[in-house]
């Protein structure tokens, strides 16, 4: 069980605000902190890891106090058993893939096992500068896991990667989370990713948790009765007689839908279907 209750004043680009969160996370859960950038998501993760100090509050990991402003306890990151995966990988450029892991834990069998599991065993003697983004992030994941962390903190780990690699690594992260019985917190602004990985979501806005629940609770709005709905963005509107036809981008699928006058280009919209049952057909993607 992880308990976090912290406050910290932050400077946002739209003015100062206070990060103020209070939550508990059970062992084995996958939590996602979702929200736009500049609302304190990464800071929250850094506070949990001990890289930043909250103004006040309390952090406890499985009965061990990591931070307590009343008792003036503040364990440095070294003493907190966390695995942190950075957005831009943060691999040690002076060490090979193998050495990046061995720096943490010299157990050769563990290193080889985890390298094989992440399918990067063949790259073990390569330096990070010679790897692709996806490969780098696999190394970073392996390095974070080799210490058997009590919690895995993922700070937008896949946002620097191509879509196809991102999808594959999402599967890998999910697999590792389950296999190692990890407790994980993922910071992300990608709904698909959160939906796929998390079993619990916080929406963070101006430092506060404004919504929480399962991804289903959060992302599927209840005011549409049809079960079939998608988020999309209006990229074009053209008049067609007395109605307007909008071109909407739903995760790279473009659809044309008749809309009213209240929809503008650039709007985020929920496209739903009412009144008939959608047909689902299995297709094979290239």
């Amino acid at each position: 069980m992880i308990k976090v209750n912290v406050k910290k004043k932050l400077k946002g680009y739209k003015g100062d605000f206070t990060l103020d969160v209070d939550f508990e996370l059970e062992k084995g859960k996958f939590l996602s902190v979702f929200g736009k950038s500049g609302h304190g998501k990464t800071t929250l993760l850094r506070i949990i890891a001990g890289l930043e100090k909250p103004d006040e509050g309390y952090i406890e990991f499985n009965g061990k106090v990591y931070f307590d402003s009343n008792k003036k306890i503040n364990l440095p990151p070294q003493k907190r058993n966390v695995g942190f995966v950075f957005q831009d990988f943060a691999l040690f450029p002076n060490m090979t893939v193998y050495e990046n892991l061995a720096f943490v834990n010299r157990n050769e069998r563990n290193i080889n096992e985890i390298l094989k599991k992440l399918e990067i065993y063949e790259l073990k003697d390569r330096y990070p500068s010679t790897l692709s983004g996806g490969q780098k992030q696999r190394v970073a994941l392996g390095r974070a896991l080799i210490r058997n962390p009590e919690i895995l903190l993922l700070d937008e780990p896949l946002s620097a990667l191509d879509e196809s690699i991102r999808l594959k690594l999402q599967d890998e992260i999910k697999k590792l989370h389950n296999e190692y019985g990890l407790t994980s917190i993922l910071v992300s602004h990608d709904k698909k990713e959160v939906f796929k990985l998390a079993d619990r979501v916080f929406v963070l806005e101006n430092g506060k948790i404004i919504k929480q629940g399962t991804p289903r609770d959060i992302f599927i709005e209840k005011d549409i009765s049809g079960k079939f709905s998608f988020y999309g963005q209006v990229i074009d509107i053209r008049p067609a007689g007395i109605v307007n036809i909008a071109t909407i981008d739903i995760n790279d699928n473009l659809v044309e839908v008749v809309v009213g006058n209240d929809v503008k280009i650039g709007d985020s919209v929920l496209v739903g279907v009412k009144g008939f049952n959608p047909v689902v057909k299995v297709i094979s993607l290239l």
Binding site: F84, L91, V104
Partner: peptide, 24 residues
């Protein structure tokens, strides 16, 4: 971030200095 990565991996400031910062 590579300095911070080293800290989160349990390495002291001195070890980080000699094995991560100076070699880079």
């Amino acid at each position: 971030n590579i300095i911070e990565a080293s800290y989160t991996l349990g390495k002291s400031k001195v070890e980080t200095l000699f094995k991560v910062i100076l070699p880079n």
